[in-house]
């Protein structure tokens, strides 16, 4: 009797403790998601229409027209497909950054390396630097007249920031530079957790350093690789600063989120922007579910 009363008290306290995040989730995530979803079926223009869901919903309802626009409307579909293409190409920086981070981690994962602490700090520095400051810096580095890159290449005059393909190359390079520190830290943390026994056994069998890396270290790190890939792809699908600050809106680097922002806040075409954001959410959720299904290690377990 007394025990169950105590239990009930605990359940109530436990629920109250998680109530604030739950309310936040209901308001900011579920509520917003619901409205985004509804907007995507309307021609809502926030300047013209007030209170769309209680009085005028019938007047602005357009069904699947906005989704159709995304894929068939002459202007919108061209921009939308371009945004998808750009976003996908820019995702290349995720595996490249992981590869670079893994290489650096493998080299630094050695107690005998002098100055490994300082090097670690240097490689991780971009991760704590302001993305805006770094974008301004790299804009300058890639400037075609007086930028560092063209100076080093002896004034080739390549217009990195204007050309449709070159600007993507520049962004990928910049993002690999900026992202490898984060992956390096994760890989280093993973390497610390690999038992020494495996390496000692390999030593007895006479394995060399490369063999140990490819036969022990790399396979043991696959969960981290998988995690980094998923998180990187999810983050990359939402990239925005590159389009806005680095490319200053250049068409060669407009991403999906830039498209959503431009159509929504810039042109007040809420329906079209919401339709694109609903599709983006579906893709990101699919990627996340793949993560949960394929990698049991990352699923939260009791």
């Amino acid at each position: 009797m007394k025990r169950s009363k105590l239990d009930r008290k605990e359940h109530i306290a436990a629920f109250l403790f998680i109530l604030i995040p739950l309310i936040g989730f209901a308001l900011f995530t579920v509520g917003s998601m619901f409205f985004s979803f509804m907007y995507s079926f309307t021609k809502l223009n926030p300047i013209k229409h007030y209170d769309p869901f209680f009085s005028i919903i019938g007047d602005i309802w357009v069904g699947f027209d906005k989704y159709k626009d995304l894929f068939t409307h002459e202007l919108h579909s061209e921009r939308f497909f371009r945004a998808i293409g750009n976003t996908l190409v820019l995702l290349l920086s995720v595996p490249l950054g992981m590869l670079a981070g893994l290489l650096v981690a493998a080299l630094l994962n050695n107690r005998k390396i002098v100055g490994s602490k300082i090097m670690r700090m240097l490689f991780y520095l971009p991760a704590v630097s302001s993305a805006v400051a770094m974008n301004l810096l790299w804009r300058f580095v890639f400037n075609h007249e007086y930028g560092l890159i063209n100076m080093l290449l002896h004034n080739t005059g390549l217009k990195w920031l204007d050309d449709y393909a070159l600007i993507k190359t520049a962004i990928i390079f910049k993002n690999v530079w900026g992202g490898l520190g984060g992956t390096m830290i994760m890989y280093l943390a993973g390497m610390l957790n690999i038992s020494r026994d495996y390496y000692e056994a390999a030593d007895i069998d006479g394995a060399n350093g490369l063999q140990k890396f490819f036969r022990i270290t790399f396979p043991m790190l696959t969960p981290i690789t998988f995690y980094l890939l998923i998180v990187g792809v999810i983050g990359g699908l939402q990239s925005y600063v590159d389009s806005d600050v680095f490319a200053q809106g250049n068409v060669g680097a407009q991403t999906i989120v830039y498209f959503i922002w431009k159509r929504g806040i810039g042109e007040w075409n809420y329906g079209l922007a919401s339709a694109a954001s609903v599709l983006l959410s579906v893709v990101i959720m699919a990627v996340t579910i793949v993560q949960f299904r394929f990698s049991n290690r990352w699923v939260f377990e009791e």
């Binding site: 995530t29 409205f35 609903v278």
Partner: peptide, 11 residues
Amino acid sequence: MVPYAALLLPQ
């Protein structure tokens, strides 16, 4: 896993 861009307009 919900992208911020999908929440932005209603908010």
